[in-house]
């Protein structure tokens, strides 16, 4: 017998199921007023620095059906590229939002601040992006991806540059549809499948 390791193993994931909204977004599930203050309603907690944007999209399953029950969480830095909790971060920006596909048409809307670029380990510049985590019935472990923006300089981003098939980079880039408005669709499977991340 070799020596034993001290490290533990992560608890295994299980699907969030169809009723995830009652746990994480009670108002959306029809249970408004459950908590005094619901978590993640908006990342904007006051007057924020930078541009407020709206990202609209859908989560499509492998049959190109816009899922009505997807729940998404986002996390990002502020307009200057500083993460909430770090020195110099915008005090009116929480960085975190919960939003869900519309039960009628499957469309979601994320209203937030356009994030800034930031320097990562080794001084590498990360292009502005929003991290997403997607859960729903039938998703056995939450899916991670990122929103980048077509009107930003994405050329030196270390993550986008790791995507071997260049056309797939486009699956992570939100398209500008108007002033402060972007479209970002997520495809779980099949043609145009979104690049999902393991970071």
């Amino acid at each position: 017998m070799v020596q034993k390791l001290d490290t533990l193993q992560e608890t295994p994931s299980q699907t969030a199921g169809p009723y995830v909204h009652i746990g994480l977004m009670p108002t959306y599930a029809g249970n408004a007023g459950y908590y005094d203050e619901e978590i993640g309603i908006s990342p904007l907690a006051g007057d924020v620095a930078g541009e407020v944007i709206e990202v609209v999209g859908s989560v499509y399953d492998g049959t190109a059906w816009a899922m009505r029950d997807a729940l998404i969480e986002s996390w990002q830095c502020d307009a200057k590229g500083v993460f909430p909790g770090h020195e110099g971060a915008d005090p009116n920006f929480t960085g975190h939002c919960r939003f869900a596909a519309n039960a009628e048409n499957g469309e979601f809307t994320l209203r937030t601040v356009k994030p800034g670029a930031y320097k990562g380990r080794g001084g590498v510049e990360n292009a502005p992006h929003i991290s997403l985590w997607i859960v729903a019935r039938g998703i056995n472990i939450g899916l991670n991806t990122r929103i980048y923006f077509e009107d930003e300089d994405n050329d030196s981003d270390p993550l986008l540059n790791r995507i071997e098939q260049h056309p797939r980079v486009q699956t992570l880039i939100a398209k500008k549809t108007g002033y402060g408005k972007y479209r970002f669709d997520i495809r779980l499977q099949g043609e145009g499948e979104t690049v999902f991340l393991d970071l």
């Binding site: 492998g62 899922m67 729903a136 998703i139 993550l159 499977q189 499948e193 999902f196 991340l197 393991d198």
Partner: peptide, 9 residues
């Protein structure tokens, strides 16, 4: 129909 068919990055 809700599982990615391509590997994660």
């Amino acid at each position: 129909s809700r599982s990615p068919s391509l590997p994660l990055l």
